[in-house]
């Protein structure tokens, strides 16, 4: 597998081409938008909460495959989690993309483990983190 394939894993390309939960979220009670002024990418995450649990998540935005896939995959990963578990998920994803390229990949990340390839591409970390920061802002908002 070439490095490019390690970065653009099938799951990531699939979410980029066929984003899940894309579009305005009906009845959303949290929303946050984060952009990267260097490249013009922007991701909005919306959450609908029931008590402290994420009943549904949606995203909109414009960006590269990594930014789009992160928006899409996070909305899938966060749905059904309570706020504390969701925050832990976001931290785990951020820790993954900031780790050294050869660090072991935690086995509890589910599909988000596909972002392990970003570790070899320091200049692309920020692309994944736009959605992470937007989701975090929703949770703290």
């Amino acid at each position: 597998m070439s490095d490019v394939r390690a970065l653009y894993q099938a799951t990531i390309v699939d979410h980029d081409r066929h984003p899940r939960n894309h579009g305005a979220l009906a009845g959303a009670d949290r929303a946050a938008t984060v952009d990267n002024p260097l490249c013009g990418d922007v991701v909005t995450i919306e959450l609908r909460l029931t008590d402290r649990t994420i009943a549904a998540a949606g995203w909109t935005g414009r960006g590269c495959a990594l930014a789009r896939a992160a928006g899409s995959m996070l909305t899938v990963a966060l749905a059904g989690l309570d706020a504390a578990a969701a925050a832990a998920r976001l931290d785990a994803l951020e820790a993954l993309v900031r780790a050294a390229p050869d660090a072991p990949v935690p086995d509890d990340l589910g599909d988000l483990a596909a972002f392990a390839g970003v570790r070899g591409f320091a200049s692309r970390r920020g692309c994944v983190l736009i959605a992470v920061r937007a989701a975090r802002a929703c949770l703290s908002g």
């Binding site: 653009y8 490249c39 692309c127």
Partner: peptide
């Protein structure tokens, strides 16, 4: 996206600007 293009080109040794 231009960044994805540039990353793939970079892996082929081709340096271009994206953004």
């Amino acid at each position: 996206h231009p960044h994805d293009v540039a990353t793939i080109l970079d892996q082929e040794g081709v340096c271009v600007r994206s953004g």
